[in-house]
Amino acid sequence: MNTVPGVVLVYQISTSSFPSSKRQRRMKWWRSWLHAATVLLLSATGVKVEHLQAENLHLLPPNDQSKVLNSEMKVLPRDCYEMLMASSGQARDGVYLIQPHDSPIVAFCAMQEGGWTVVQHITVNSSVNFDRTWNEYKNGFGDVNGDHWLGNERLHQLTRGPARYKLGVKLVDQDAVTKMGEYDPFLVEGESTAYRLRLGLFQGTAVDALTLDTENYLHDNQKFTTKDRDNDNYFQNCAKLEFQGVAGGGWWYDACAGANLNRRNVIYWQKDCNKERLCKYAWMMVKPSDTVKVIYSGDSKKDEL
């Protein structure tokens, strides 16, 4: 049992007079009571005894769970940007607990870039397999410190409001040239719609590969497709189609793709990233939108999106 300097726990349980079955039940009850009392006492003395609680703890290796940067916070931020604001801009890059819905989750926060919540990261020829099932894409996989998919349900929880969110895409090619793009607003609908993608206006140095119909593929308004759930507009399942022996992975396919950041052998983003112009890394990140206009009308004023 854990001990605390200056705190002595003394207990004695006499069970000899109980029948065997009753004795076992009584001992079980005492052990439960004693554990609860010990936790309460240690907490009161400032000793941290609780385990890290997160709905997606499978995305963080056990050896890294002690490195969560805000594990002591009592009231968790909704996203990484709120965490950055709570720290007066001093928070550093790393893994944080956030709470976009009912339960906490772990996520990597790109604080130096402005408080983005990373929802996807991939390295070309990654050791992480992105050829996953519907439930794996729903709940997330990989390692939030490296290559991973945070999960479609997390994307829905983050972007459904009350704040309006935008999507950031970051691409780095083999020559270390970085291109960025933003879609504002950005929304992933719930599972009942197959996590349908909703995108707003695009700006950035990368090409618009999700809403601009340069290759007759429109990913905006598409449902999510995985190898075991075909929601695309092609006669075959786009997530199963292979290139050099590697399947496409889950994505918001049309028929099939003008962009796909979940194929681990070739990161595809139209003319910016493809099999001729190789990219080494890609990120998808979300952040509250800053496109809010304040309109003044006489003595009254209102915010309009």
Results as ranks from 00 to 15, higher is better:
Q12L: 11
Q24F: 08
K28H: 13
K28L: 09
W33Q: 11
L34I: 09
H35F: 14
T38C: 02
T38R: 11
L40E: 07
L40I: 02
G46L: 07
K48E: 12
H51C: 01
L52C: 00
L52K: 03
K74G: 08
A86H: 11
A86N: 12
Q90V: 12
T117I: 00
H121Q: 14
K138G: 02
K138V: 12
G140T: 01
D143A: 06
V144K: 02
P162S: 14
Y165G: 03
V169A: 14
D175T: 09
D175S: 08
T178E: 14
T178M: 15
E182D: 05
P185D: 03
S192K: 13
Y195F: 15
R196F: 00
A206W: 02
D208I: 00
D208P: 00
T211W: 05
Y217G: 04
D220A: 12
D220R: 12
D228N: 15
D232E: 10
Y234T: 13
F235C: 12
N237Q: 12
C238N: 08
C238R: 09
A239F: 06
A239M: 05
L241P: 01
Q244P: 03
G250L: 10
W251H: 08
Y253C: 01
A255V: 05
P288C: 03
T291Y: 11
I295P: 01
